[in-house]
Structures are given as structure tokens and as C-alpha cells.
Design a protein around this nucleic acid. Structure first.
Length: 567
RNA sequence: UGGGGGAUCGUCUAGUGGUAGGACUACGGACUCUGACUCCGUCAACCCAGGUUCGAAUCCUGGUCCCUCAGCCA
């Protein structure tokens, strides 16, 4: 792959890896892993982690494993395993033959737990969950030891075996590490290692009724896979001493180390799993892959490309300081990618009929249009032209302000790749006053878009021939929230759901598109000239024409001028 | 008021004792058969106070503010 040699910006993790390489800490190996819990869909924050872990492996010619952290049978499902695999692949990363499941290690983990018990480093506690909480102490006060803390090794062994055999009910006992109930880090106050959970696991079925906790499983899974750099988010900083403690007891052949980076936050976006679930459950969005969702599947359906998302993840950097990235950067990377690659096409979203009075009745002709000015090898295509056209309603104003240089009565503009057009009259509905059509004339000498006399026009409009156009539904998406930081607690007690943008979705059902779009396949992307990037919705099948999703608008200087004028 | 982390342009991020750089945004301008793209330019930052040093974002001391931890979740 050509991009293996591309150097990405430096960051603190690379600095650490460079040092480790120079001291030969891991015999020159770099082994990372992406460890999702299969209990939900991946979002753009996960994409950051995926890009870091797989990206590091690519850059340092190491490996990155895909490992499902499936130690909680009550929350995890195969459906999520599949969606995660699909999303990681779609992003362009390959775990080759290294797909693992923490549940594959259950037997080994059990043996290691037994070893801990034998070394008097773990014990079976029979306090209730509630009692354990009370015994834990607080941030400022030490905890108390459980009365079961000093059970004999034999008794612990016996109890733990019987826990596995299913002799006890959920919650009757847990296995705890024996560390220090007065430790200033609460996670070190004899953390729970195993709990009884008589639940069906999506992979191990009913084989187990005790399940290991994250802190016991994760570090050992890393060690078993010979991971060198175990990269996770900041909230696990407190877990690192425990990560190290467990490995210190077990002394595995491979000794991984944990490093933490700041998770991604995005303006006008929520990324917590809990809130995302709420958006789906409350019907605020249609599904996990609703194009307004910050999920990878949502962006995919919206028309974002893996290249753009990877580029975004590279540009935001990796650091330890909490931060909120401006969504404008994501929009920039998708525009940048699509600008280079998307075929240009003309589509009228809000049609306004134009009748060219001096164009022969019944005639039509084909005009040549460039498919992508950024890539001339994409060639040209023919676009039909005739007496009756549609143009964009927003491209005409009866009483234009000074900075509006599109079509207006008496004004001449260019129809892209076609002719100069002059508006003679705006015909209105006598009842409503609404403009229903424009009577115009064209200049036959300007065919192709240039005037032989050298006269200029200030605007070029996109258009579509009425009799040749295809009908389509186009969905206009905008940011889901009106507030830059919807997660922030509001002084009036308003929550993220109070800041939903009522215009996050606008469905346009009467759009007129260039005929070549009839052949568009699901997920094909285009630039509708002067409007934005659109792609064929891969999920909606409906008769009577394709359904397009707007990925992102083009930058719009005119919109800014209008907005500034209103102030 | 315990422990663990963090503070650099509006935003994200480089810098590791020697001219604070890049990207996004914003704002100008050039170009233009997309008010797009591209190009050029402008605004703009080291949390604070001391100290060490010829020289400090960087080292030291003391503050301030922010994040995080009391699941048998991950």
C-alpha cells in the first residue's frame, strides 16, 4: 500500500514508541489493538481510536488486533459484532487473521484467577453489592475490610470453583483482588474481578455463569496477545495502576503498557452512547445509521468517505488535554475529498420554470459538459437542452439587492455549458402573487457559454431541461443540534434534547435532475453544481426515481453575504 | 477538603533551553462558465506569580482553573 510510508504528524504516543524502539523495549515490535465492547454502534470517536491504533501499526510496520471486549453477556450482541467489523473495514483497516474475543480467554482467565487466589492475592467476598459500596469508603475516607477478606486459600478456591459450577445465585459472591482498602485510588480498594451472572453469552452460550470484569480481563488479554502499546481514553487513567497490578501478579511473558489520550468531542454533536441511544429510542432520528447520527454508519449513509474521516482523524491530532473539535474541520475534509473525486452534475432542488420564448418549439439539443474540472480525465457528457427549463428558485429575485448577481428582470446570466439567458418577465399567480414562471430569451450566438462579442455576465446558473429531467427526492441534512456544546449542562436545566435543530432534515420531493442520474447506483456520490455534494441513499428504495442525501453543502459566500445583510 | 491527569491563536495541534509553526474558522483580495476549487494576504496564543539562565512555552517553586474516580459497566 502506497500510504504506508506517509508520515503523519507527531504526537506523544509516537514519541513514546520512538523511545521504546530506540531502547529495544519490545524487541522492535509495535502491537496495538482496537478493543470495542459489542454493545452498540461505532461513532466518530471510535473512528479516532481506530485510526490511532491501526494507523500506528501501519506506520511502524506493526500489527493491530481487533478484539471484542465481551465480558458482560447482558449487554452484548452479535449484531453489534457484525456492525463493528463492517465499520472498521469500511474505514479501510484490516485486522487480517487477528480477530479476537475476550471470551476466547475465559478459561485462561479463570486459571489466572485461581493462581491469584493461591497466592493470597484474591478472595471470595460474600458481601452484597450494597455492602461492598459502603465498605469502599469515600474519596477522602479509607474503606473497611470485608469480614470475608481473610478466608483461607482452600475456602476461597472451593468457593470460586463452586461459583463457576453455578451453585450460587447472582450476587451471592464475587471474587475480589486483595490489594488495599485504604488505597487513595478507589479502584485499588479490592476491586471486583469476577461476578456471578447466570446469563446467556453471545459466544460462549451457557458455558459460564461467572464473568471476569474489565480490569482483570483487559490487561491480561493485552498480555496474551502480546500487545506492546495499549491505547485507551483518558477516563481509564485511574485504572492504570490496577492494570499494572494485575500484570505484576501474573508476570506474563509479554508485558504491555497502557497509555491514555483524550477522547474526541465535536461541536454540535453528542457522542455519548447513552445519549445516542436516546436519540434512536425517542424517535428523534430514524435509526443508528440515520445520516444525522455521528455514527460511522450514519456518516457512511450520509455520503462521507473513509478517506475524509481518516484525514479528519489525522488532522485533529492526539493529545491528553480535553478538547472540542469544530465540526467545520470534518466538513472541510469531506469537501476536500469530494471536490477532487465527485462527478459534477446539475440538479434543481426547488424548481422554477423558465420558458425561452425565442427557442424553437419542439427542438432540443445536447450540450457538452465537463464531468470534473478537477480531474479532466473524468471526461465529458451530453446534457439535453430545450425550450422549457427549470432553474433554482433562489437564483431569481424580482427586486435584487445590489450584491445579488444572479437572474432578475432584464438581466442576463449564463446557463452553465449552454447559453446566455435574459429574463423578460416574471409571471405570477394572480391569487397568491407567487412567481410561477419566467419568460426569457436566449442568445443563440452564445452556445457553449461564451459570447462572441466578449460580453460578460456576472453569474452562471445550473439548470435542467423540463422534458428530459428525472424526478427525485432529495434529503437536506443539517446539524442535529443548535447548540455548539449540547452536552453542557444548562443553567435552566435544559438538556441536549432541548437543543435539537428542527431543520436538521428537510425532504424535497419535487427535485429535477439531469437525466444521467437515472443510472446512479446506491452510494454513488456527486457534486450538484453550485449546491453541494449528494449521494444516493443506499437504504431507501422507492419507485419514481432515486433518493439523494445531501452530504454537505458547498461553501456558500452568497449565504454569508445574505446573513450579514440581515444583521 | 484523597488520588490520578491537563492548561499554547476563536478551535485543534506542533514545539522538549535558542526567531512560538501548521491546520480549521473568520475577514480581505486575486482568479473564475460552480458566489465552488485554487492562490495570496490579515487578525490571532504560551493559565498566573516568582525564580534559575546570556536566553524559558520548555527547568524550579508557589498558586489558579478544568477533567476524572466511590458499577458485581467498559
Amino acid at each position: 500500500m502506497a500510504d504506508e510510508d506517509i508520515k503523519t504528524p507527531s504526537n506523544f504516543i509516537k514519541t513514546i514508541i520512538d523511545e521504546d524502539l530506540s531502547t529495544n523495549k519490545y524487541q522492535g515490535r509495535v502491537a496495538t489493538r482496537f478493543p470495542p465492547e459489542p454493545n452498540g454502534y461505532l461513532h466518530i470517536g471510535h473512528a479516532k481510536s481506530i485510526c490511532i491504533n491501526f494507523g500506528l501499526a501501519r506506520e511502524y510496520k506493526g500489527t493491530c488486533n481487533l478484539r471484542f471486549d465481551d465480558t458482560n453477556p447482558t449487554k452484548e450482541e452479535v449484531e453489534y459484532v457484525h456492525s463493528i467489523e463492517e465499520d472498521v473495514s469500511w474505514l479501510g483497516f484490516d485486522w487480517q487473521d487477528r480477530k479476537f474475543f475476550a471470551s476466547d480467554y475465559f478459561e485462561k482467565l479463570f486459571d489466572l484467577a485461581v493462581e491469584l487466589i493461591k497466592n493470597a492475592k484474591a478472595y471470595v467476598d460474600s458481601l452484597s453489592a450494597d455492602q461492598i459500596r459502603k465498605y469502599r469508603g469515600t474519596l477522602t475516607e479509607p474503606g473497611k475490610q470485608s469480614p470475608y477478606r481473610d478466608r483461607s486459600i482452600e475456602e476461597n478456591l472451593d468457593l470460586f470453583q463452586r461459583m463457576r459450577k453455578g451453585e450460587f445465585d447472582d450476587g451471592a459472591h464475587v471474587l475480589r483482588a486483595k490489594i488495599d482498602m485504604a488505597h487513595p485510588n478507589l479502584l485499588m480498594r479490592d476491586p471486583t474481578l469476577y461476578r456471578i451472572r447466570k446469563a446467556h453469552h453471545h459466544r460462549t452460550g451457557d458455558k459460564w455463569c461467572i464473568y471476569p470484569m474489565y480490569d482483570f480481563t483487559h490487561c491480561l488479554s493485552d498480555a496474551l496477545e502480546c500487545i506492546t502499546h495499549s491505547i485507551c481514553t483518558l477516563e481509564f487513567e485511574n485504572n492504570r495502576p490496577l492494570y499494572d497490578w494485575v500484570l505484576d501478579q501474573v508476570k506474563p511473558a509479554c508485558r504491555p503498557h497502557q497509555y491514555e489520550f483524550a477522547r474526541l468531542n465535536l461541536t454540535y454533536t453528542v457522542l455519548s452512547k447513552r445519549k445516542l441511544i436516546q436519540l434512536v429510542k425517542d424517535g428523534i432520528v430514524e435509526s443508528w445509521d440515520d445520516p444525522r447520527m455521528p455514527t460511522i454508519s450514519g456518516y457512511r449513509r450520509r455520503g462521507y468517505t473513509p478517506e475524509a474521516i481518516r484525514n479528519f482523524c489525522e488532522r485533529i491530532g492526539v493529545a491528553k488535554a480535553n478538547s472540542v473539535v469544530d465540526i467545520a474541520l470534518l466538513e472541510h475534509t469531506i469537501r476536500e475529498d469530494l471536490n477532487a473525486r465527485a462527478p459534477r452534475v446539475m440538479g434543481v432542488l426547488k424548481p422554477l420554470k423558465v420558458i425561452i420564448e425565442n427557442y424553437p418549439e419542439g427542438q432540443s439539443e445536447e450540450l457538452e459538459a465537463i464531468n470534473n474540472p478537477e480531474n479532466l480525465s473524468a471526461g465529458t457528457r451530453k446534457v439535453p437542452f430545450s425550450k422549457i427549463l427549470y432553474i433554482e428558485r433562489d437564483d431569481f429575485m424580482e427586486n435584487p439587492p445590489k450584491k445579488f448577481f444572479r437572474l432578475a428582470p432584464g438581466r442576463e446570466v449564463r446557463l452553465r455549458y449552454a447559453y446566455f439567458l435574459t429574463c423578460k418577465e416574471a409571471v405570477k399567480d394572480p391569487q397568491t402573487g407567487e412567481i410561477i414562471e419566467l419568460r426569457c430569451t436566449y442568445d443563440p450566438a452564445t452556445k457553449g457559454g461564451n459570447a462572441p462579442d466578449g460580453r460578460k455576465v456576472k453569474a452562471t446558473l445550473h439548470w435542467v431541461s423540463a422534458e428530459h429531467a428525472i424526478d427525485a427526492q432529495v434529503r437536506l441534512y443539517d446539524r442535529l443540534f443548535t447548540k455548539a456544546n449540547p452536552e453542557e449542562k444548562d443553567e435552566q436545566g435544559l438538556t441536549f434534547k432541548d437543543f435539537i435543530n428542527p431543520d436538521s432534515l428537510t425532504v424535497l420531493k419535487n427535485c429535477k435532475l439531469e437525466p444521467c442520474l437515472a443510472q446512479a447506483s446506491p452510494s454513488d456520490f456527486f457534486q450538484f453544481e453550485r449546491l453541494g455534494y449528494f449521494s444516493v441513499d443506499p437504504k431507501t428504495k422507492q419507485p419514481g426515481g432515486p433518493v439523494f442525501n445531501r452530504t454537505v453543502t458547498l461553501r456558500d459566500t452568497w449565504a454569508k453575504i445574505k446573513k450579514a445583510g440581515k444583521k
